[in-house]
Amino acid sequence: MARFVIRRILLALPALFGLVVLTFVLSRVVPGDPAATLAGDAATPAQIAEIRAQYGLDRPIWEQAIVHVRQVLTGDFGRSVFSGRPVVEEIAFRLPATLELTFAALLLSTLFGVALGLVAALDHNGPVDHLVRLLSIGGLAIASFWLAIMLQLVFSMDLDWLPLRGRMDVTLGTPPRVTGFLLVDTLLAGRPDMLASALRHMVLPAVTLALPGLATIARFTRSGVLEALQKDYVLYARAAGYGRVRLAAIYVLRNAVTVTVTQIGLLFGALISGAVAVEAVFDWPGLGTYAVQAILSSDYKALLAVTMVVGVVYAVVNVAVDVAQALIDPRVAEEMS
């Protein structure tokens, strides 16, 4: 197993290197002359040349590429043009908020998606099945920002059950920043009231973000379970006298989720991009809102860093997914070695 994990990590490296190259190419090709953009509309040619020299944009392209790779590898992304602060610092500040939100959404969509998919399959063509199918079509069809606003209207404005926006009740202050993950930091600070507030703030954005993934996972789990139920080994297990509950909830589900797990890896990309809209609506101080700012202000250093960070997170999640799959199905690890 350890060898499988190492192998899988090594296999992810070329993809990450590809990302480094791609970000370089994009940052040079797409915005036209970055120096001109940075200097602004009113800049004189002399000012542009100065900026070009300052950012090393007057060097030969291969030299720029080497500098770029070295900067990325050392995590040196320079300063944000917008705020003047080091990009790495800003991202370190915002990444935990986004990760907290996306992992909460991932957890919600996995738990509820698998459970709904399972009960739907066990009630094949019955009322529960139809209901779940309706939900999963709806979950995929509804636009995130619309859902977010509807949830805010109902649960914050009308019913006043949950907070409208933000990560924490401002009157409570904030816990000392240790990990940046509020759920962890409030616990470390020994402040259950803050933890409760952070959790309550997380409900609506996490639900909004989770819904499309939940729908996808429910659909794949349902068809996975239905497929597994047709297998000879299920008939054999029934003949051998397995209990009904064990057969459905453990025996068949484990076969079904091999497919579901692959979906989770793919979903993570959708979650990250979904986070942009959700963070904007809920005023969530994460990477999504940061990326929007960076785009609006042509802050290409910041964008570069966001792209790299998201790429790394995506690669890590996919390694984790593959490892999970190998743990679920022993044949996966063997196929790779």
């Binding site: 297998k231 397995y242 209990g243 484990r254």
Partner: peptide, 25 residues
């Protein structure tokens, strides 16, 4: 059963699958 290739669940240890039958019966 007829087909030994298809009658055991690939994601569980063969021994555990038989032990589950014994646990119940």
């Amino acid at each position: 059963p007829q087909d030994p290739y298809l009658s055991l669940n690939p994601v569980f240890r063969a021994g555990d699958q038989i032990l589950e039958i014994m646990r119940r019966h």
